[in-house]
Simulated scan of single mutants.
Amino acid sequence: MTNGSSRNLDLDALSGQTYQSMHRLASTAARAAGESGLEGALVELVRIRASQLNGCAFCVDMHTIDARRSGESEQRLYALATWEEAPFFTERERAALEFTEAVTLIHDGHVPDDVYERTVKVFGAEQLAQLLWIIVVINAYNRVAVTSRRVAGHYAPGA
């Protein structure tokens, strides 16, 4: 992928109604995740990890900025790509990250039963459902950002 490409779609201008619907879905999923008891820090880790797997520099940049603003440590952000080997993550975070990888890489053989069972055991069905929506939304955003050539470094929180 080249960031110098002229292929940069302004989806807000070209398909504003659909793009705004995506934003509403993302807001609804985030609100429901919080209401279900999913921790904001966990949600940001999930968003970052899916974005890493999908090669979405724009979303990695955005969500690491948001995670830092929420108090996430640099150490954990640096170690996220190697979360399985790093001792900095809780059982809940590990379950969420494993599930995130399985859903994001679903083309590698679906979500394995053992991964699903471990995740539902840690989160319960309601939180698992909300976690799944967070993963689905970030994967959709990754695909939009990568395809439309969104460039990292231009995210301004609250803008």
Rank of each mutant, 00 (worst) to 15 (best):
T2S: 15
T2F: 14
G4V: 05
S5W: 04
S6D: 12
L9E: 09
A13D: 09
Q17C: 01
Q17F: 10
T18E: 10
Y19F: 04
H23F: 04
R24T: 09
T28N: 12
T28F: 08
A29P: 04
A30E: 12
A30M: 10
R31Q: 08
A32I: 02
G34E: 04
E35N: 14
G40D: 07
A41I: 08
L42N: 08
V43C: 06
R47F: 04
R49S: 01
R49Y: 13
R49V: 02
S51K: 00
N54E: 02
N54W: 03
G55R: 02
C56K: 10
F58Y: 14
F58C: 12
C59W: 01
D61P: 07
I65R: 12
A67D: 00
A67Y: 00
R68M: 04
R69I: 07
S70Y: 05
S70I: 01
G71M: 06
E74L: 03
L77Q: 10
A79E: 02
L80Q: 02
A81L: 09
T82L: 13
A86H: 08
T90R: 10
R92S: 00
R94W: 11
A95Q: 09
L97M: 11
E98Y: 08
E98M: 07
V103A: 05
V103C: 13
T104A: 07
L105E: 07
H107V: 11
D113V: 06
D114H: 15
D114R: 12
T119D: 10
V120C: 09
V120D: 03
F123W: 02
G124N: 10
A125M: 11
A129M: 00
Q130S: 09
L132H: 13
W133P: 05
I138M: 09
A140E: 11
R143W: 12
A145P: 05
T147M: 13
G153Y: 13
G153A: 13
Y155H: 15
G158M: 11
